[in-house]
Write a protein that binds this DNA or RNA. Structure first.
Lengths: 70, 70
DNA sequence: ATAAAATGTCAACTATATATTGCATTGAGT
DNA sequence: ACTCAATGCAATATATAGTTGACATTTTAT
């Protein structure tokens, strides 16, 4: 699924996909595909993205199971 | 570096590398190499491991920058 | 309306995560 | 001492993450 939390964090930091890509050492296409939910990034890339955006793994990549909220 | 937090969480759950591997759908060697810090797992695998062990991404895979603690 | 920046997308390529098999080593139990 | 379960380790094979370059589309500003 699309990673809307990552996209929001990026625009909060006011940087483009291309700028974020440069910050974390990948290409623009890779950032685009992660935001589009079209693949499964490596842990180290996730961590680099979090640090570039001032967030943690849980902030950007963890989904709570909200199904069973009573 | 070695992922000691993941190993501790696994032994707290009292399961072997092989059992964890089966739970998350990879081989024993993959679990072993992640604990040994010898590679860079995918996000989806990290999430599967966290759920199998009752932890979050931050619990097992996030390192705070403790360098600048004053 | 137009130009420029940002993003989407595709094909072909390279690097690496993960599988598979097999053997060695360690530790606990008997 | 012996056995068995758990782990380490290495070689080769395959799937997929990530690159590169090019072009299309959308957004934003003028």
């Amino acid at each position: 699924m699309k990673n809307i939390k990552m996209k929001i964090a990026r625009v909060e930091n006011d940087i483009s996909q291309e700028e974020l890509a440069k910050l974390v050492g990948v290409t623009r296409q890779t950032i685009g595909m992660i935001e589009a939910g079209k693949f499964n990034p490596s842990l180290q890339l996730c961590i680099a993205i979090c640090k570039a955006l001032g967030k943690t793994l849980n902030d950007l990549f963890w989904e709570e199971d909200n199904h069973e909220k009573i």
